[in-house]
Design a protein around this nucleic acid. Sequence first.
DNA 1: AGGGCTATCTATAACCG
DNA 2: TCGGTTATAGATAGCCC
Lengths: 133, 133
Amino acid sequence: MGRGKIVIRRIDNSTSRQVTFSKRRNGIFKKAKELGILCDAEVGLVIFSSTGRLYEYASSSMKSVIDRYGRAKEEQQLVANPNSELKVRWSGEVGVHRGGWLHHNSPIHDELYSPFFSSFSPDLSKFSHCPNH
Amino acid sequence: MGRGKIVIRRIDNSTSRQVTFSKRRNGIFKKAKELGILCDAEVGLVIFSSTGRLYEYASSSMKSVIDRYGRAKEEQQLVANPNSELKVRWSGEVGVHRGGWLHHNSPIHDELYSPFFSSFSPDLSKFSHCPNH
DNA sequence: AGGGCTATCTATAACCG
DNA sequence: TCGGTTATAGATAGCCC
């Protein structure tokens, strides 16, 4: 999408890389927003530049996205291990497995995602910034 | 980018919304990959369709991205509250604040991001799927 | 380094089988 | 409902300040 076709490989020139990063970052944030609105989807996007700077966008809030992600992952595990289909209580409290009961038939069950996502602070929104309006 | 211009607003027709979701989801995943490669960035993208299904992409791993996100957020908080610039220990252990010492001068400090990110299971990669090759 | 400006390349909306 | 196809809208690479 430019005056010339490019190959997708790391841009060596640091300045060019920075410029491209800035332009494409804006582009992908726009796409993420459009997808969320058009398709009624929940979208979370996290980008760290090569200099380590954080850029983020979430159609709802990053907390919500990560929280939901953790729950979805846990469900995937249960589906992948039907024999461990026992109730897992989602208390929404801070902590790991606390108060919940997990089945230990599955060898990977000890490494289950935990409800720690829920410990995100509601106040963190004040630190969020969306580079694309 | 199609036969006609569209307005960015929720697509009412369920079928059209699904079709657009599928196409644009592939598009944004491609963009995310390109950005990561071209600009040497770490990218994490999480999408929940309107039907609740999870789609994800991470240039490294989602665990890495979320983990780093949590740390970056904590740093942002420290920057936002210079007077609370005391050491926070990142143990990498499961739990909240456990073993770490947090300063309580700041009113928002009790709601600090915690090192719980590090409790992600390395095995979760086997459940990841990237819809866009 | 930053902010525009197009020529071009891409993504995709509308179609079609 | 579902993949392909194609005309167009949109994103952006290379330039210029």
